[in-house]
Amino acid sequence: MTLFTIFIGAAIINNYVLVQFLGICPFVGVSKKIESSLSMGMATTFVMTLAATVTWLIYHFILTPLNLQFLQIVSFILVIASLVQLVEMFIKKVSKPLYDTLGIFLPLITTNCAIMGVALFLVMKEYTFIESIVFGFSAGVGFTLAIVLMAGIREELELADVPEHFRGAPITMIVAGCLALAFMGFAGMI
């Protein structure tokens, strides 16, 4: 039951993008098409899950025994950057078109604060190993959900009769705001 609570909590109630406002950059940058936003979401989910796993191991087996908790941010950055490198190589090998579509946003997963957020939160909330993995995965699912929702709305917006000065970025901001308001409705469920 607690695992399920963690999942719902991280994916929906405390959705990283729409409630905690972390990882806004790819949320706006790669949400033009459902297909590419879904791939972006999956890549981020993958990195988040792995990052949660590895950072938990490093924190509990290296940093805590040696009393080096003050190095957590540095070591987490190292872990995340390396994982993103691996994912990038993997995607380039498996699907070149996807690699081209994601473009600069793929290496930018490194600086996606949502991933750093996952790593820091799981330490702060003192999760166990399994809980951390579920937490990382569900944060990724939440991110994917938000970015795909956004892409779906933006695809429809292409056809909408938007006033000239609102086209492009401004209407995207307004839509993001409406989505965030909607997600605020989940607050206090657990």
Binding site: I62, L63, L66, N67, L68, L71, V74, S75, L78, V79
Partner: peptide
């Protein structure tokens, strides 16, 4: 702790 810090970060 300085030595440990250098070693562990270097190791990782």
């Amino acid at each position: 702790s300085l030595i440990y810090a250098v070693l562990s970060m270097g190791g990782i």
